[in-house]
């Protein structure tokens, strides 16, 4: 199962810095792995996960990732979306489930600190290491939301109105599938995840 990840690592290690494709280096000054031009893993934004560790999206390289942007004070849609993601995970065949990561990125750069995300993980029963929760800085959150096409607006109370979008990234970080809305059928997402591993 880790063969692909190892392969990616081998490619990463053997790619000389001078051989970067012209279109790829969104991350200047670093030997870029052989990522597709539209891979989100080119982004140089840094995040903090709920264990307090500094992370880049590139750390997700090698496995499919199902991503949603949420905030933990959300009163309506986010709990439903997370429940949808739990259903999707449960519906994945065992082999795919073992490889697929589920990433929640918070809109709320102020309130959703790593300890708050850690509490949210416990409350929603999100198992490690499959589930990853990212806290980030406002410009990076905005950039990621724009790359996904998520619309978001912070109101005076600090709550967010946002589109409910589930995105599947393939193992090299390209957007493979997106679904808008809540309580949808899980089959399509499961098929999309499975297809990224073929």
């Amino acid at each position: 199962m880790k063969l692909f990840a190892l392969l990616c690592l081998a490619v990463f290690a053997s790619t000389p810095a001078t051989a970067q494709p012209a279109a790829a280096p969104a991350v200047p000054g670093r030997a870029a792995p052989a990522l597709p031009p539209k891979s989100l893993y080119h982004l140089d934004s840094t995040w903090t996960d709920d264990t307090g560790q500094t992370r880049q999206l590139l750390s997700l390289l090698g496995d499919p990732v199902v991503v949603a942007m949420i905030f933990t004070n959300c009163e309506y849609a986010c709990p439903i979306m997370v429940t949808d993601l739990l259903r999707i995970r449960a519906a994945l065949p065992a082999a795919e489930r073992a490889r697929t990561k589920f990433l929640l990125v918070s809109f709320d750069d102020v309130r959703d600190t790593p300890p708050v995300l850690r509490a949210y993980r416990a409350k929603m029963n999100l198992e490690a290491p499959a589930w990853q929760l990212f806290h980030g800085a406002a410009p990076d959150i905005q950039e990621l939301a724009l790359l996904f096409g998520v619309k978001v607006k912070r109101d005076a109370r600090g709550q967010f109105s946002h589109s409910n979008l589930i995105t599947v990234l393939n193992p090299t970080g390209e957007i493979a599938y997106q679904r808008e809305g809540l309580r949808g059928d899980t089959d399509e997402v499961v098929r999309a995840v499975t297809a990224t591993l073929k």
């Binding site: 849609a77 724009l146 809305g181």
Partner: peptide, 29 residues
């Protein structure tokens, strides 16, 4: 800077009552 804060759906006919399932907090725009 914040062009993506307009919470309208892609389908103009649906915008009169923004679908609650597509937007958190929607139906209120």
């Amino acid at each position: 800077d914040d062009f993506n804060t307009a919470l309208t759906t892609g389908e103009s006919r649906a915008d009169s009552g923004l679908e609650r399932d597509l937007f958190c907090g929607a139906g209120s725009v």
